[in-house]
């Protein structure tokens, strides 16, 4: 344990800064963070993380449990706001705008930044009402508009053909994989440009998992996707870039291929090869 902490201190402060300087892409980042720290009470759980996420790409956050990757993901739609002891420092921008700015309305932000959770969490309502929920809370009542949005979202979530004849059935009656796709459709229905996924397949069986992964591939064409995963094979399969977190630090952030074949940091390599975690 003590050797690990030593390594942390000596190794990764520099390379990250170098990377953000030299490897900046010409296109503007969709999401960018600048020296972000997060505290729960006195606990510092995210330590000075700066990252830039490109538009219409899939970025995976990996790392052992408790490394802060979920907390970091939840910064992007301000889901941490509900934790009473939560406090953050540093800037987080989406499309160049500070999402923690005073004038930002959290409800507007969340329409733009959808989220899919670890366990499928459909509301105990019909499939239709689940997908239409986000529109209804915005005050949309026209049946035709809702119908169209529900169909479109379910098609995008590759679920339409399976459920089109049973839209009024309770979403809880579906299989776990279908439920998760309902949740994805529900998130898509409000027209986000970013989709956050917090271990979206960890509660699913392998077949359902591969369906969700396939879906992520298709959604990449239109959405910026950030996915937290425990499963490194999954990160390898679905993501363009991968960020490795450890003890609240961003250890390494690079093209997924690079991370998995030739990581810069010894810590990353040890985690990838399963020597701890």
């Amino acid at each position: 344990m003590s050797t690990l902490t030593m390594e942390k201190k000596t190794h990764f402060a520099e390379p990250i800064k170098n990377m953000s300087d030299s490897k900046k892409k010409p296109s503007i980042a969709k999401i960018s963070t600048n020296n972000v720290n997060v505290f729960y009470g006195d606990n510092k759980v995210i330590k000075d993380v700066s990252i830039e996420i490109q538009e219409k790409s899939v970025t995976a956050f990996i790392g052992p449990s408790g490394c802060g990757k979920s907390t970091f993901l939840r910064l992007f739609n301000r889901m941490n706001d509900y934790i009473e002891t939560f406090r953050k420092e540093g800037d987080i921008c989406i499309d160049g705008k500070d999402i923690y700015g005073k004038k930002v309305m959290v409800e507007e932000l969340r329409k733009m930044v959808g989220m899919v959770f670890q366990k499928p969490n459909p509301f105990p309502k019909s499939i239709y009402e689940n997908v239409a929920f986000g529109l209804r809370i915005q005050g949309i009542k026209k049946r035709a508009v809702l119908d169209e949005a529900v169909e479109h979202s379910l098609r995008q979530a590759a679920l339409w053909e399976e459920v089109k004849d049973q839209l009024n059935k309770s979403a809880l009656a579906l299989s776990g994989g279908q439920q998760q796709r309902v949740c994805i459709a529900r998130a898509l229905a409000v027209g986000p440009s970013v989709l956050l996924m917090d271990e979206p397949a960890s509660a699913l069986d392998p077949i359902a998992t591969s369906k969700v992964e396939e879906l992520i591939h298709q959604l990449k064409e239109k959405y910026t996707i950030v996915i937290v995963t425990h499963n490194m094979q999954q990160a390898g399969r679905v993501s363009d870039k991968t960020a490795f977190f450890y003890l609240g630090n961003l250890v390494e952030f690079d093209k997924t291929k690079k991370i998995f074949t030739n990581p810069k940091q010894e810590l990353t390599e040890r985690y990838i090869t399963g020597r701890f975690g």
Partner: peptide, 8 residues
């Protein structure tokens, strides 16, 4: 007022 403001 937008919908979001009304809801708030």
């Amino acid at each position: 007022m937008t919908n979001v403001q009304i809801n708030r």
